[in-house]
């Protein structure tokens, strides 16, 4: 009974949307990379780097939006590294991705230690505050859940629409999708597969970093080690769950986040206190795996995903 009551509270759905926001950014980023044919396992580390870079920029005195841009640029930097190694040089996307995650994570921790050698508890910044959209936020249940969020959350939802339109309605989107389906055809059109793929990986990595920055600049107001905590890997599962489509990926992220918000609340009910808390924490990961099992059969994987393209090779 208690669980049903939770589902009808605005605060629950507000939390779900908040939890979904970083996942939406990073899932979109991964989706763009994979649509162009590149699996980006750097996602976990790039999110860590973005979380730190954005927060550090604001902590050193820049504005919040400048911080978001800094995170984006740092993410694109790691995306550039990833794409140089995987696209023109065609190295294993698994190995390079894991290497980028390790590099991004360790250099972030190194930078944190150098920048703040003395601190015991991480300092706080003035994070993004919720902005209530006039009129819309007065709708019962929906208003507080959807329209009293921070600006970054609105940006995440707008980006889903923008990415969907660009992917399916513009020549650029067609080129990106074709690079992931049939790169030889793209090359035959006189376009550079290398440039398209590198651009997609860089932009996608930028979005992953903004997803990380959401954690330090909107969901919380300081940087912790381990704060990304596997969210990047979950986003990779969400891309598969969403069949490489932005709309479905958004749905997956919100469903996943709702489940996450629910487990936090059920933990505090009379039933929840009898169950070890680790069971609840496991649920999101188990759910991701189950979702993959259900979706993998029907998934329309980009045909050239993880296949390097070397011009002149048949």
């Amino acid at each position: 009974m208690e669980i049903i009551e939770i589902l009808f509270t605005a605060s629950f759905w507000a939390a779900a949307i908040r939890i979904a926001s970083p996942l939406i950014f990073a899932t979109l980023g991964e989706l763009i990379c994979e649509r162009a044919g590149v699996l980006n396992l750097g996602i976990e580390g790039i999110m860590v780097a973005g979380a730190f870079a954005g927060w550090m920029a604001v902590y050193s005195g820049t504005g919040l939006w400048v911080g978001v841009c800094v995170a984006m640029i740092v993410g694109m930097g790691f995306g550039l590294l990833h794409s140089i190694l995987t696209v023109p040089f065609g190295l294993s996307q698994h190995v390079v991705g894991l290497g980028v995650t390790l590099l991004a994570t360790s250099s972030t921790y190194y930078a944190y230690r150098l920048a703040l050698p003395e601190v015991t508890s991480p300092p706080k910044i003035q994070a993004f505050q919720p902005y209530e959209i006039p009129i819309l936020s007065d709708i019962p249940l929906l208003g507080p859940a959807l329209f009293s969020q921070t600006p970054l959350t609105y940006l995440a939802f707008i980006l889903v629409a923008v990415v969907a339109v660009v992917l399916y309605r513009t020549p650029l989107g067609l080129a990106v999708r074709a690079a992931g389906e049939n790169p030889a055809a793209v090359a035959a059109q006189g376009l550079s597969v290398t440039a398209i793929r590198m651009g997609a990986v860089m932009f996608g990595s930028g979005l992953m970093a903004v997803g990380g920055a959401f954690l330090t600049m909107s969901a919380f107001d300081s940087f912790f080690f381990e704060m990304v905590n596997g969210r990047g890997w979950i986003c990779i599962a969400l891309v598969v769950f969403g069949s490489w489509r932005p709309g479905k990926a958004l749905l997956g992220a919100v469903l996943f986040a709702a489940f996450d918000a629910l487990q936090i609340r059920v933990q505090q009910t009379s039933l929840g206190t009898q169950i070890p808390y680790q069971i609840f924490l496991m649920m999101p990961y188990i759910l991701s795996i189950l979702a993959l099992v259900v979706m993998s059969r029907r998934a329309e994987v980009p045909a050239a995903l993880m296949v390097p393209f070397n011009k002149g090779e048949r």
Binding site: W233, I236, V240, Q278, Y285, S296
Partner: peptide, 20 residues
């Protein structure tokens, strides 16, 4: 059996098993 990519499942298993 199901064609599920093992990269994601093995990664997620790390988190599940450590919680276990």
């Amino acid at each position: 059996r199901f064609g599920v990519d093992e990269v994601v499942t093995t990664l997620l298993f790390n988190f599940i098993f450590l919680l276990f």
